[in-house]
Computed example of a mutant assay.
Amino acid sequence: MAVSTPICDFGWKAVDFELPGTDGRMWRLADIRGPKGTLIMFICNHCPYVQAVMGRILRDARELQELGIGVAAISSNDATTYPQDSFEEMKKEAERHGFTFPYLYDESQDVARAYGAVCTPDFFGFNADLELQYRGRLDASGRQPAGPDVRRELFEAMKQIAETGKGPQDQIPSMGCSIKWKQG
């Protein structure tokens, strides 16, 4: 079932965390934070929405990193119910796609709850002061292949944040599979 993200809560401060990465090290928000902003993405391995846009996520992340934006992806899904989202499978996914950013495992799901993440993909774009400025979609394509003229909404918003510290007022929510919460 597809779910959509809530409207951007401008100025909401990023919550610190410490999570293991597929690269074998522990990561905190301060390690990821970029001089011009930070993008935290909640994704997972199995979600068809994420898989459909993976190439564009990788392209945009790489280009945003070149602009001084720190980038990380977090998977918070229950790996007991969805074994393809296990930490071992995350390592394979990061290697297969050549992630240029840390891919972090939120096994307790505490970070997803702290951020209010609801779906995969769910994008949180912060300015240099770690104030939320973007909570929208990657682009208009959803699960479809992107046409040559599709607007790169996430990239454009994060570029604006890097340049001005402020995100666009008009944002269209991201849509994807719900976070797979643990039972109980």
Rank of each mutant, 00 (worst) to 15 (best):
E66H: 13
E66K: 08
L67D: 12
G68Y: 12
G68D: 12
I69S: 00
I69R: 01
G70Q: 07
G70N: 02
V71W: 03
V71L: 11
V71H: 14
V71M: 14
A72M: 06
I74H: 13
I74A: 14
S75P: 10
S75G: 10
N77A: 11
N77I: 13
N77H: 12
N77Q: 09
D78M: 05
D78F: 02
T80P: 06
T81C: 11
T81G: 11
Y82S: 04
Q84Y: 03
D85M: 03
F87K: 07
F87N: 04
E88T: 12
E89Y: 12
E89R: 07
M90Y: 05
M90F: 03
M90G: 01
M90A: 06
K91N: 02
K91V: 11
K91S: 02
K91Y: 05
K92D: 15
K92G: 11
E93A: 01
E93K: 05
A94N: 04
E95S: 12
E95T: 05
E95A: 11
R96W: 10
H97Q: 15
H97I: 00
H97E: 13
G98D: 12
T100G: 08
T100I: 00
T100C: 08
T100P: 14
T100A: 02
F101W: 08
F101D: 04
P102A: 04
Y103V: 09
Y103S: 04
L104A: 02
L104N: 10
Y105P: 02
